[in-house]
Structures are given as structure tokens and as C-alpha cells.
Simulated assay, not measured.
Amino acid sequence: MALEHYISDLLYRYNCVVVPGFGAFLTQKTSAKINPDTNTFYAPTKLLAFNGQLTSNDGLLASYISEADKISFETALTYIEEHVKNWNRILGNEGSLVIKKIGVLNKNNEGSLLFQPASEINYLTSSFGLSNFSSLPITREILKEEVEELEESIPLVISTERRENKGFRPYLKYAAVLFLAFSTGLTAYKVFEKQRTNEQVARANAREYVDKQIQEATFFDLSPLELPTVTVDATSTKLPSEKDGEMHHIIAGAFRIKANADRKIKELKAKGYNSTYYGTNAYGLHVVTYESFSNATEALNALKEIKRAQSKDAWLLSKK
């Protein structure tokens, strides 16, 4: 099998295929384009180029030949060397080398190789089945211009209306007016109903989207605060906030699914917090805490630090 066949197979999958001792064939992806002069549409493709300075063996071509023909790697290298010698001999004698499915190499007066890639093959696999095509330009006729031309060529003569008393039915005029008003109102009603239906559908879609997106929620008690009357005992050393048996919990969040709450607890414990499962709230959500304190001052200091370092949504729940 000819060497260019193996090179062509590899160009579909790789951007660079090196032929040891000869040069490298390179590909670069380009997007679709249109030629405005010929109205030709070109599909996305890989531009093919040749670099005669990349001659070092990277093993890709020899490995592919060895695997495809079930021969040794050394035999594949020998096969490549023979083809390269033949290519160089053709270039030296004829000055031009045609490589099927790849392109044409020509040697100029200075001894440099000029490469003209083949256009019949698209090595971009994502463009398989897409071919170039030409289309006639679209000509658009403007109706307004035609009407203006007709108005200029055909003069309009307005004559006075003649009314004959015989057989004249004035009620038809009023019936036409009423019918026009009714049809206008019906059209406006249909437009209004369609707009209202679209708004309802949009709201339903928005609610469904929000329900799907919300996986975690933190709820706050928004009921008005009742300020109890505090009596301070001058002989006591406790602060009013340090009530016997009262615990202060820093809330991390409330979850609809218990597994999410357990995962949050595991995550916070990994960060060094003594996170616990508090239970379910009035909304049926599973509540998770960062820490719990019996001292209100310590709880407030910890809450301040958590808000700064972890989450601004953390809040304090004090309960006996």
C-alpha cells in the first residue's frame, strides 16, 4: 500500500503527521465561509500545510504502519525510508511530486518546496457529508416602489358620489359600521386573552424553574420580635442573656432532602466545625448547625467569625 494512504488516514485524527527524513504535513481547523464574488458556501474544514524542516521521527507514522500491516516497527521504518528516497528522486528529476489525497509539492529555483494542498478531501471529521455549493443571489422586489410606479403611470380620478333614492337602504351602512366595531372588539379580546395566557405560562415556567434550582435554603424567623421585660438582680453575677439551660445554635442551612443535610454536616466537620443535625423546622426542612454554645457571648463571637469566613447567611437560634 502506498505511503500517502497511511498519511491520509492519520490526518483525520492528528494535526501533525511527520514523514521521517522528508517533512511534516500539518492541519489547522477553519470555520465555514462564503465567497461573496461567486456566492459559494464553504463548509468548515482543515487547512493542510507542509513543513520541510520537521523531519525528526516521532514514531507516529511508523507505529501506525506497523499496527495496520502487522509488521515490526523496524520494517515499517525501512518501508518509509524507501518511499522517501523515491519521492526525493522524483523531485530531483521532475521538480514536482504528486501525493494522492494530500497535494502537490513543487521545487522552485532556490531549491525550496512549495506545497499546494488537495481540495477534494476534507479532513475535518465533524464536517463529514458537507460539501461546498453555490447559490444564486437573492433579488428582492419592493412592493412600495411598484405601487409608486403604477400611481405615476395611472392617474386617479375622484368623482362625486351619486345617490339614488330608489332602492337605497341606509340601514346597511349602520350594519357595516356595527360589524366593523364588533370584529375590532373581538380581535382586541383575542389579543388580550393570548397575552394573559402567555403571562400565565411564563409564570408557571418560572415557578417550575425556581423549584428545580433551589436545593438548599436558609430560613429566618421573620415574626415581630417581642421584647420581654428584663429584671436584673444586682446580687447576681450572670448576664441577662445567660439564662439557665438556654443553648445558642449557629444555623448553617435547612435542606429539603435529608441526604443533603448529612452531606453538609460532613463537609463542615471536615473544616473543623462541630456541626450537628438540629432536626426539622416548621417547614419540614432538615436544619444543620455550625456550632452550639451555652454562652451567648461566645456564640455571637463565633457567628461573627463564620459570617466573615464562611457564609453571610449564617444566623443564631437561641432556645432552651
Rank of each mutant, 00 (worst) to 15 (best):
C16P: 02
K70A: 12
E67C: 08
A175C: 04
W315N: 05
I34D: 09
L172Y: 15
E246H: 10
I250A: 06
Y278L: 04
N57C: 04
G92K: 11
Y64C: 05
H286I: 09
P36V: 02
I90G: 02
S96C: 06
Y6R: 00
K173P: 00
S292R: 05
P224Y: 06
T276W: 05
V104W: 06
K166V: 09
F22R: 01
K271L: 05
L11G: 00
K194R: 13
T187G: 14
S66G: 10
E4I: 01
E161D: 05
K258P: 01
S241H: 10
I65Q: 01
C16Y: 11
L77N: 09
A175I: 03
E291C: 03
P44H: 12
Y171G: 05
A176Y: 11
K271N: 06
Y6H: 04
E216H: 13
Y209M: 09
K264R: 12
G279S: 08
G95Y: 05
D244P: 00
I142H: 03
T125V: 11
L97K: 08
I121G: 00
A32G: 06
S135P: 00
D211V: 00
F50R: 01
F255D: 01
D58N: 08
I214L: 15
A181Q: 15
L317D: 06
G111H: 11
A270V: 02
G279F: 07
Q215K: 10
R13T: 09
L105T: 00
E120G: 02
S8R: 15
P240V: 11
S159T: 15
L113V: 06
Q200T: 07
V232A: 02
L172H: 13
D9W: 01
T184K: 01
